[in-house]
């Protein structure tokens, strides 16, 4: 599976945030998206998830080389940094409902309880309304939607920053389990997290996407290389 981003341009007023960003996410795996504050990471995610249409350029998905097709509505899952869930439902009700509309029980045989247990939501919390859930718990429920719905591309905007250490480890393990069947792109400011979790690193700089040599990721020079690239970009290019 390939996700092909080609010449993506997006402007807000006179400010051009994406200036022809191109990159091919060539296989399933976890991609770290790095960039300075205001570099346009959220804008890129919004364009990929069709929240905002890009001014020009294309995003296509290809299961094999011959048939690249534009990204459809069910192709992208977007885990927002501030999770949003319908707060008038309990965790169990929401997952039950979601399993029904996706037709999952017949596919995996897992019940709502099985799924909630998978992301570490305790039994006592499952029948509580989600409006009383912590940020991290809401994030787990949001992640569950993508685990169940299985969109080929999952975008994660700073997904682990609100988790405690235990939840963050559980979530990292979850992402590692998912990576064989999905293209996971997650933005982060934490370099250690990127090196720990990602198979590839992409830098968004000056409105363009730039690959970092994967061979560098686990070397001592990696951090310096990233800082060199990002320093070149300047801070506060765009207020997201």
């Amino acid at each position: 599976m390939k996700l092909i981003v080609q010449d993506l341009v997006k402007s807000f007023g006179t400010k051009q945030v994406l200036k022809g960003a191109s990159y091919t996410f060539a296989k399933e795996g976890i991609y770290g998206l790095l960039g300075r504050n205001g570099a346009g990471k959220t804008t890129l995610f919004n364009c990929l998830s069709a929240e905002y249409p890009p001014d020009s350029g294309s995003v296509t998905l290809s299961r094999n080389v011959e048939d690249p097709r534009p990204l459809g509505q069910g192709d992208v899952g977007y885990v927002l940094s501030t999770p949003v869930v319908p707060e008038f439902l309990t965790g169990r009700e929401f997952v039950k409902f979601f399993l029904e509309i996706t037709g999952d029980p017949g596919r995996t045989g897992r019940t709502a309880d099985d799924w909630l247990a998978l992301v570490g939501i305790e039994k006592d919390d499952r029948d509580r309304l989600m409006r009383g859930y912590s940020h991290g718990m809401k994030n787990k429920v949001q992640m569950l939607c993508f685990l169940i719905g299985r969109p080929p591309v999952i975008l994660l905007d700073e997904p682990l920053t609100s988790f405690d250490v235990v939840a963050a480890l559980e979530m990292k393990n979850l992402l590692r389990e998912m990576k064989d069947e999905h293209i996971l792109i997650f933005s982060t400011h934490i370099l250690q997290l990127a090196t720990d979790l990602c198979d590839d690193i992409v830098v968004l700089n000056h409105g363009l996407l730039e690959e970092v040599d994967p061979a560098l990721i686990h070397t001592p020079e990696f951090e310096q290389r990233i800082v060199d690239i990002l320093r070149d970009g300047g801070e506060g290019q765009h207020e997201e």
Binding site: Q73, L80, V84, P86, C145, P151
Partner: peptide
């Protein structure tokens, strides 16, 4: 406020 604001963030709700 209580339903669509959250669910419209999900692509499956906008189908």
């Amino acid at each position: 406020y209580n339903c669509d604001l959250a669910l419209l963030k999900y692509p499956w709700y906008r189908r």
